[in-house]
């Protein structure tokens, strides 16, 4: 089996292989440093509590990055991500197991593009994060 997804092989309704993420407070600290987003709700529990939050929460942009990885892993080295749209509907917390998932909703064989519904499910099965992505995929022919 080739690593490369092609537009020909891909069917509407097909599921994108699930990407599992287990974010930790360490990852949130790394992401704060790497992204430059030092808003304290992501690493200071007392600060987060004072903001009415149950504890530190994931950066929304980290969840976008997870869904970006879902798509680039699937699109493969010759595929290209054209757009990535993500809504943060519920907060996610470190220590949870997050399933990044997607399904092909539409494909345009002439353009070589596929539109996918994407989302993150938390450990309780709640879709905390939803969105859409469009990828360009190579053709076998």
């Amino acid at each position: 089996m080739s690593d490369q997804t092609s537009i020909d092989d891909m069917a509407v309704g097909a599921e994108i292989p699930t990407l599992t993420k287990r974010p930790t407070t360490r990852q949130l600290a790394m992401y704060a440093g790497a992204s430059g987003d030092f808003y304290e709700i992501h690493y200071d529990k007392d600060f987060a509590n004072a903001q009415g939050l149950p504890g530190v929460i994931l950066h929304g942009a980290l969840k976008s990055a997870f869904l970006g990885q879902l798509m680039t892993d699937w699109a493969g080295p010759e595929g290209r991500l054209l757009s990535l749209s993500v809504r943060y509907r519920e907060m996610d917390v470190p220590g949870d197991t997050l399933a990044c998932r997607g399904v092909v909703k539409e494909k345009d064989e002439a353009a070589g593009t596929a539109r996918c519904e994407i989302w993150i499910e938390n450990g309780a099965g709640v879709r905390t994060t939803t969105g859409e992505a469009v990828v360009a995929l190579p053709s076998r022919s």
């Binding site: 990852q27 992204s35 430059g36 980290l62 990055a65 970006g68």
Partner: peptide
Amino acid sequence: FAAAIGDANPAYPDVAPPTFLRS
């Protein structure tokens, strides 16, 4: 950035991950 998001894609760091530019 790639390490922080936990993405071991061999294309990085020759190219930036999709959400890198915000940083």
